[in-house]
Every structure is written in structure tokens, then in C-alpha cells.
Design a protein around this nucleic acid. Structure first.
Lengths: 395, 395
DNA sequence: CAGAATTTGTTCTATTGTGAACAAATTGAA
DNA sequence: TTCAATTTGTTCACAATAGAACAAATTCTG
């Protein structure tokens, strides 16, 4: 009941007003004090104070019990959007897994589910799975489907600005499909779609290893190689959503044929596809990325060597990107990142060796593993919604 | 006399006010109507109108005679900063040439001079040349040195955010020097320093081939290879000013040693250094970039082939950058760009061949020659000042 | 060629947002 | 411990800004 009133109050906030700015900032950042809102928006503290009291009366904004302790001075009261103001959903369409998560507007994650699917799965299957889990979860937890403010969808593939999957490298049956329209049959709320690496970068930016660092590069190493470039706090998408395709830079024009149609792409050398084959052959049983890392951690020389070999090419890739972008930070993602220092250590060496800017001159480039390697894209899908909440109000 | 009054009026404009916003927009864009200012700043037309009448009274802003003709509707009156409000200077420190230009605040270029200098010239020599031409020109044209609002300096080398030349590839004797402090003995005004490619990109963005296109990549091919990435209307600088060093991406880890200390850098293949040597040997006389292009234009097969060979590697470089950034536009700069289609045509082919995103899928990437190839960096040095005029007021 | 449709620049009034001032709540220094 | 130094959140008078309304100057459309 009260929920409905809050949602109506939110809907009546006009775009561009102070209230809308405050709601937007809180949606993007989760929770903060009034003074922080004032600094972030550039508004006067007095203006924020007045608007916040109104937003508190309409129950759109709530005071969170917890106080903030930073430096000297009176601590501010932590403000956040009312968790009851609405829910948002994140979906990740991976190569062999579909992930699903529900969160509220004050950045609380309520539930996360995973579904294994066969490789090269059908769109219909994904839709069915997502529809079922959505309906069942909302019913079981007494949530109204109308409370959904938006759904973010992360896809393992290049997504154009319109929501169309450009090429079907990992999801062949999805090529050319408009994912937004596809899922509009499931969610009666705005749907935002983006590439998995872009989503992963968003998650690391908002809650992870890049919090407060508006310039960095996400570098994903898994069965594919890809990434995202964050500049000025925003992901660079490119004209057709094709930015950050690090894996498909050709490093050898006479090299093997890649699934993208070019020769000698970085992905052929820096992904873990071939190492898995080699390890499976040597160990005479199927080896996965996870088991290969486990082997390496127990000291298996072959697995360690495979990781180091891939790290060499990964480091070359970082050097290439670093020479072009020169970011202060690289975040390594993808399942390979779970091998930690086994990967990072040789990768840092390769990076230094091949990069123009050496650690001695100027600011050093740090290379770290992401905070959410296993579900970064999924969390980023939620971030997609939270970041665009302002735009969604007007719709 | 009146000049002094205008300058005082400008200095009293407080940062953040509507007047400051208007002056900033006019400084950045040259001239525009009040309605355009309103749209760009997000202010109401009425607010702009009131502020502009005041600025006109204080003679900071003037009405330019010329009217604007665009579409339907009443044409607006063109507003611009008073040319007498101040001057700004651009300096380009090239490999064998120092360029100098004077402009006023309404984007009129008053004079441009060039001085040939020996390769690997001394900082003292450059300072002497710039000081002399500055003093003499201002004296000869009855300009007060105090009218100088700012000086922009473009340098052939990587410039850190503090104004220090990081590495002395082209200007060995300047390595590690703070160029801003160096020139503070010449100019008693704010000094802004940046890399030549970044400056070139700024010039093309403001007045040239990228006008109105906030996302593009500048790709310079000369005796070195470099560039700049423009995202969201601003140049990406990188942590230590090292972004856009396309020439020093290694495309062959076993290749020849490069002057940067790495092996097989793109610059070794895509710059015109080796072609010049080969052409000189074949023609048994010293050939320059200019004369090589002239030869190619008269049909000399060797010169045409040299350009095509370099274009192949240039195209590979574009493909590499395109796969990472995916910009809608590449602007080719550097003296090699003066060969026009002789370079562009094979380069476009190589780009398509090596790039992930093919013209059929999605938005095509256009590759064009810049508008100011001979003096883009110099003009960009002035753009540096005009773009930061707002920040300079408060200083 | 005449009227419709745009777009601009200006004036006016209502209102939104600001800056100054202050009490409150903390940290750090004497 | 006590007092200075910060920083926050709130109130209030006042100034800055926006929105509506209008005349003016153009292009577009029959």
C-alpha cells in the first residue's frame, strides 16, 4: 500500500528538478549525506536540505540508521532511496550460464540465482528461464511485479546502442537479435542492455576495485578475451558498441584464423582455450579453467606454465592498450583472474617489458584482479539500471 | 585605453556566474547567437539575454555584423568576445621548426610565423626565438604585451600533466624539462602545454574535419607515428600524458630496436623514415617527405609504392586502434597525410582487412585527412588557451 | 505570393535556489 | 579535560533564474 504511494511520489518528480538530481545521485551512489549530495550536484547545502525534507516526507528518501565517520566535523546522516521505492533486476547471458539477481534502490542485493545452460542455447530457453525465476521469486517474496523499476541485461557479445547483438561469437543463435525487444515480453519496465565487459567495468567502478577511479581499463581473460575502457567515469562504447574488443586485435597477420574472420587475433594466444586442450591431453581427462587453476595452485608445473604462457600474451595486450590509453589502472577479469598472482606476476613482467611507459617515468600503472570476478557482469547489469534511473523516471 | 577597461571588466567576472559561462562558451566556440548560448549552457534564453546586454555594455561581448542563416525562423545576432579583450599565442615546438601564431578572443588569427631550426635544438634557442618574435610582433602591431591572456605550447613529445616533457624522443635536450616554467620567462600570462597530437586533435575538433564530432581519433604519420583520442569532446590524456602513442605499440616482439627502447614498434614500419632512405638511395639524391609526395604525384612508381607500403602498416594501426576504441572517424595527420588518396586508398583497404568491425555491420568508420595538416598543432596550441579561458580568468 | 510555422530576442513576474548565520556534533591539539 | 577547528543540517531574507507572453524576422508550403 505504502509502496504504491512511494512509487507515485517518485513518478511525479519532474526531470531536471533538484529532487530528480538528488534521486539520481542516490540511485547511482547508494547512500550518502546531504552535504555530499550538495558537493556532487553542485547545489547549495541549503537547497539540498529543503528538497531532502520533502523527499523524506513523501518517503522516497529515508534516513539510514548508520552514521558516517570520516574525518573531523559533525557526522552527516546517511540518506538513501527507500528500499521499498522499487526493485531492479540484473540478468547475465553467459556462454553456458544464465545469472539472475534482484536488488532494491538502496543497493541491497536481495537474491542471486544461476542456471547452467548448454552451449549455444536458444533465446527462447533463456527467456523461459528468466521469466520463470522472475515470476516465482517475486511471488515467493511478496514483491509486486510492478515494483520493477528497470532490468539490466549483460550479454556475452558486442551490443549496439539500440540493443542489438552485432555478432554472435559466443551466442551464435542470438546474432542480429534485439535483446531489448526480446525481453520486453518478460519485463514491463525499461530494459537496458550492454556487453558483459562493459557491465563488469561498471560493477568494479561502482562497488569494486575501481571505486572512485574514473579512468581505468577492464581486461577480461576467459575462453575469450575482451574488455572495456572507462574514461571520465563512463564506459567508452564506440560507434557500434565495438570498443574494448581487445581480443580481436590482430597481433600476427599471418597467424591462425580466428572465429571473427581475421588472422592472428590476440584472443588466439591470450585466451585459455588452447591451454585447456593441452592440459586435458597431458592429464588424459577433461580439464576446465577452474580445475586448471586448482592444479596450478597445488603446484602442477604444466598448469603453472600454461597460465604463465597466457600471461605473457595478456601482458602484451595490456602493453598495447596501455600505450594507446595510458590508464592508471588495469583490472583483470574473467575466470583466469581467479588464478591471482600466478597470472598477475608474469603478466606484470610482460607488461613492463612491452610497454612504452616504464615504471620509472611518471605514475605507475597498477594491475589488479577485480573484486567481483565471478559475477561482475551480473552486478554491472544492475548498475546499468541504477545509473540510468534518472532517464527512466521520465519514461 | 578602452582595451584596459574591457580587460578589467573581464577580470571582475566571478567564476561560476552566468556571465562567466557565457564568456567561456564564446571563448570556446568563437561566435554564436544568444539562443545557441542558452542551449549550450542549459540556461534560459531570458537569462542569457539579460547577461548579454550587461556584457555588451561593458564591451566584453560585441555584436558581429554578420547574421546567421541556418534553417527556418528569425536569424539570431552573432555574438562574440570583443577582439580587443585580449590576445592569445600559440607556439609549436617541432622537430626542425618552431611555429608561432597570434589570435584574438573571437578566433581571428592575426599572424603566423615559422622558424627553421637545426635538428636537436637547444631550449635556449627556442626561448630566444619565441621571445624575440613575440616582443617584436606586439610592438610592431601596437599590441600591449599585457593584452596576452594566455599562451599555448604544442610540443613534439609526451607532455605530463604538470607540463614536463617525459621523454625526449624528438627533442632530446628537452627531456625532463618543465616547459611551462621554461616559458614563464617569456610570457607573463598563463601557459598551457600539451603534446602536438593532442593539440592537432583539438584544432580539428574546433575548426577542422571533426567539427561537431565529439568522438574521433587523430592518427599522425610523419617521421614519427602518434595520435590522440577524443572522447566526449575532450582529449584522453592518460595518467602521465602518454595516451595516443600509437607509434610505440609493438607489433613484432622480435622486430628491430626502436628509439623508445622496445622492439618492433609500429613507428618502425608506418613512419616515413625508412622510405625516405630508400628513395634517396634509388634516386641518388636526398629526398624529403615533401619531395617524395611530389614524386608520387607525378607518377613515380617507387614513391607510390613507398606510400602504399606505409599505408598498409598505417591501416593495421588504425585497425588496432579501431578495435580498441571503435571511433566513427579517423583523421589522418602528419606530413604524410598531404599525399591524400595515394595514402588513404590503400590505408582504407588495410583497415578493413585487419579490423574486427566490417563496414557491413553497423556504422562505418570514415577515414579522412585533416583540414590543417601543415599547422594543426600550432592552431591547437591556441585552442588550448581558448578552451581554458574560464579557468584562466580566476587565476 | 500569402499565411502557416519557426525561431529569436526581450520584458515582466513568480519562484526557485543561494549565501549568510547559527546551533549541533564531532575530531584534534593544548 | 577543555577549547579550537571542522563539518553538518537548518532557517530565512534576498538575489538570480526561469517561464510565459509577445513582437520581429525569417523559411516553408500550398
Amino acid at each position: 500500500m505504502a509502496v504504491h504511494r512511494i512509487r507515485r511520489a517518485m513518478a511525479t518528480i519532474e526531470a531536471g528538478t533538484v529532487a530528480a538530481q538528488i534521486v539520481g545521485v542516490l540511485s547511482r551512489h547508494g547512500g550518502m549525506s546531504g552535504a555530499q549530495i550538495a558537493r556532487l550536484t553542485g547545489l547549495a547545502r541549503s537547497t539540498v536540505s529543503i528538497a531532502v525534507t520533502q523527499l523524506k516526507q513523501s518517503r522516497v528518501v529515508v534516513e539510514v540508521e548508520r552514521m558516517m565517520l570520516e574525518g573531523a566535523g559533525r557526522p552527516g546522516t546517511l540518506l538513501a532511496l527507500n528500499p521499498q521505492a522499487g526493485t531492479c533486476i540484473g540478468v547475465h547471458l553467459g556462454d553456458t550460464e544464465i545469472q539472475f539477481v534482484v536488488a532494491d534502490m538502496s543497493h541491497n542485493f536481495i537474491a542471486e540465482k544461476r542456471f547452467a545452460v548448454g552451449i549455444d542455447y536458444e533465446p527462447e530457453q533463456a527467456l523461459r528461464i528468466v521469466k520463470t525465476v522472475f515470476e516465482e521469486f517475486y511471488k515467493a517474496n511478496g514483491l509486486s511485479q510492478q515494483s520493477l523499476l528497470g532490468a539490466g541485461i549483460s550479454v556475452s557479445g558486442p551490443v549496439g546502442r539500440n540493443g542489438v547483438l552485432q555478432r554472435g561469437g559466443i551466442l551464435p543463435k542470438w546474432a542480429g537479435l534485439n535483446i531489448r525487444t526480446l525481453f520486453s515480453s518478460v519485463f514491463v519496465a525499461p530494459i537496458l542492455v550492454d556487453n558483459e565487459s562493459n557491465c563488469a567495468a561498471l560493477a568494479e567502478l561502482k562497488w569494486g576495485a575501481a571505486r572512485g577511479i574514473p579512468e581505468f581499463v577492464m581486461f577480461k581473460m576467459d575462453v575469450g578475451v575482451g574488455g572495456a575502457i572507462v574514461n571520465n567515469g563512463a564506459v567508452i562504447t564506440g560507434v557500434s558498441g565495438g570498443a574494448g574488443e581487445f581480443g580481436h586485435v590482430s597481433i600476427n597477420p599471418e597467424g591462425e584464423l580466428c572465429r571473427c574472420g581475421n588472422r592472428g587475433c590476440l584472443e588466439l594466444y591470450a585466451s585459455f582455450v588452447k591451454p585447456i586442450e593441452q592440459l586435458s591431453r597431458v592429464h588424459r581427462k577433461p580439464i576446465t579453467i577452474e580445475s586448471a587453476i586448482a592444479l596450478a595452485e597445488t603446484g602442477d608445473a604444466g598448469a603453472i606454465r600454461m597460465i604463465a604462457d597466457v600471461a605473457e600474451y595478456g601482458g602484451r595486450g595490456l602493453a598495447m592498450v596501455g600505450t594507446i590509453i595510458n590508464p592508471p589502472l588495469f583490472i583483470i577479469g574473467g575466470r583466469l583472474a581467479m588464478s591471482g598472482e600466478l597470472l598477475l606476476s608474469p603478466m606484470r613482467k610482460a607488461f613492463e617489458r612491452h610497454s612504452l611507459i616504464k615504471p620509472q617515468d611518471g605514475a605507475p600503472t597498477s594491475i589488479v584482479v577485480g573484486k567481483f570476478t565471478e559475477n561482475d557482469s551480473l552486478l554491472g547489469a544492475v548498475a546499468l539500471v541504477l545509473d540510468n534511473q534518472q532517464a527512466l523516471i521520465s519514461t
